[in-house]
Design a protein around this nucleic acid. Structure first.
Lengths: 333, 333
DNA sequence: GGGTGAACCTGGAACGTTCCAGACTGTGCG
DNA sequence: CGCACAGTCTGGAACGTTCCAGGTTCACCC
């Protein structure tokens, strides 16, 4: 069943190849300084013994972990997308990603504590809900990069989308289609909600639609979207912009159940371009956050901080991009 | 900004408290063998220095990692639920959970490789798609527990739901409501699909409804559910059992868009009782997999194997439970 | 008053790496 | 011929823990 033998170590490989530990170490790390013949011999020996370096010992000695800690919400589809791209962004950098999930039974403090224990060299937090002060305290211990939320603290790096701009694009699109009664379903205290709200207000104003502007409390879950949509049923606008895709899903669902055609009766715009929105049967017009760019920037920024490189701006704002799909169309009346 | 000082070590604490490293180590691990006064003094010193044990060194020396590696699909809602419960199941055991995600750009091999590098002592795989042979090979290196899939290999532990029984319960429920034309939307090659299919067939037969039995190819995603539902529109049954909740969501969506009332025109039953199903606006009748029990069993089993305890059965089958919600009702005609 | 434990504490050797200083070749050059 | 130098390679000291074999102290008992 399980192989009972002790794992092979550097010393074992060295003995078998008839060289010193140091040289094996060198070869394993692909550093120059070993002859080509010896190198091959060592690699063979390692292979025969099934040697795999022990990262604990390695990290202990080198004093580094080359680990980027990532805290994400396991229930957030968009976080899933970000994690996916974080893995690829980290792939070529020589750093690895260590995941720690926020769940209904495991808060951010616990999630970050776990990563600190593992000696991550930097933390990347996806849309954290912790107050700025806590994040600032964390940032005194190691570099912290916050993704998809704005944090005003000189010690915390931020990579986020220009959320206000995103909502402006959404409203512009709807207005161009001929909509005037455009309602915004809001994200409350969620990261980014305030700015999206502001973007909506400004955009409505700039189109001279102040009178139509209307904000309904929503949230970041399907539930909250559904609740908001039910409120809407009494007095249906021709278009809705929603805080995020997940919430928009709830809206779509309630509208469908009450016989309101989308986009016939109501146009709906989401936010995030998460997996959800891209599904063929949802086909949601949405504001895409450029996850690939954001994750690449976040990883780069974290590594810069770790390696002490000069960092120009503490906050990087990535432009959003409206993705027009099937849930928006000109109003019928 | 970042505190430049070196981290405090055992030796620092020992020096400050005026005792030996060994004693500090002891106290930090909460082992007996230190006087109450000294203990307090040491804890104080540690606190003042902001000492946190270095897990790398600790694990290196003790030869153990106390880490349970968990491989999960980041896009699977039900996996999210399982991860949530795995964390709580592990909380009291002295073992920790290390997460490794399967994403569109990162396959299971890569995910497990990462965990092996971290020296996890056992692996818990959520609904893995890898062939039995690969899993068996993995199991020669360390204990492997597969969750929510059946694997016929003497070296691999399995904790799964009695899937056939689940579908039987679903069909029984529908028949009791008066349905006869009950269609099953299938999961194809997904883990568990074959057994659910079998459960459906057997249940239909045992109710003498062979003639009505009809299986439509589906899958495990919303997309595939939606596609299956569109096929169904030509010849709508009065009830549908669906491979999983995620797929059922796609079904519900297409039905709603085509003006079919649920449960008025069609009753729908999902599988998993994932977060999705519990959402108030979805309110899906579904077959619950007992995630709490399953995760607890999986963690317990993994630890038993690690610690060499005798293990009675290689496979544990947990009974499912039908959760009746709002998507099932008697047929109208 | 000597012996016996228990209770408390210490020193130093591991664990498997990396890093550093230096040793040994052989080659090219003045 | 002697010297410098690059290219290889070695030995041993870290890294921060845990573990083990012991060393003290002190109360208690005969």
């Amino acid at each position: 069943m399980r192989s009972a033998e002790r794992r092979a170590t550097l010393a074992d490989v060295a003995a078998r190849a008839g060289v010193s530990k140091s040289l094996v170490s060198l070869v394993m790390r692909d550093e120059p300084g070993a002859g080509v013949a010896t190198r091959r011999r060592i690699l063979e020996a390692a292979d025969e013994l099934g040697y795999h370096p022990d990262s604990r010992a390695r990290l202990l000695r080198s004093g580094r972990s080359r680990l980027l800690g990532v805290v994400f919400g396991i229930q957030h589809d968009f976080h899933g997308d970000l994690v996916t791209d974080l893995y690829t962004a980290a792939r070529e950098t020589g750093y690895e990603v260590a995941l720690s999930a926020v769940t209904p039974g495991r808060d951010e403090r616990e999630a970050t504590a776990g990563l600190l224990q593992d000696r991550c060299e930097a933390l990347i937090l996806l849309g954290p809900q912790e107050p700025t002060a806590s994040l600032a305290r964390l940032a005194t211990r190691l570099p912290v990069v916050v993704l998809a939320r704005s944090v005003r603290d000189p010690a915390v790096d931020v990579v986020r989308t220009a959320d206000a701009e995103g909502l402006r694009q959404a409203v512009d699109h709807l207005v161009r289609l001929g909509h005037r009664a455009i309602v915004h379903i809001d994200g409350g205290r969620a990261p980014g909600a305030a700015e999206r709200r502001r973007g909506y207000r400004d955009a409505m104003r700039s189109h001279g639609l102040d009178g139509y502007a209307r904000i309904i409390p929503g949230g970041l879950t399907e539930e909250e979207g559904a609740a908001a949509a039910r409120v809407l049923l009494d007095d249906v606008p021709t278009a809705v912009t929603v805080f995020n895709d997940r919430c928009a899903t709830g809206v779509l669902d309630v509208l469908a159940r009450h016989g309101r055609a989308v986009p016939g009766d109501v146009s709906v715009v989401g936010y995030d371009d998460s997996r959800l929105a891209r599904l063929a049967h949802v086909d949601l017009t949405t504001v895409a956050q450029d996850a690939v760019t954001m994750t690449r920037l976040a990883v780069g920024r974290a590594i810069d901080r770790i390696e002490g490189a000069a960092v120009a701006r503490r906050e990087v704002v990535v432009p959003p991009r409206l993705v027009v799909r099937g849930t928006t169309a000109p109003p019928l009346h």
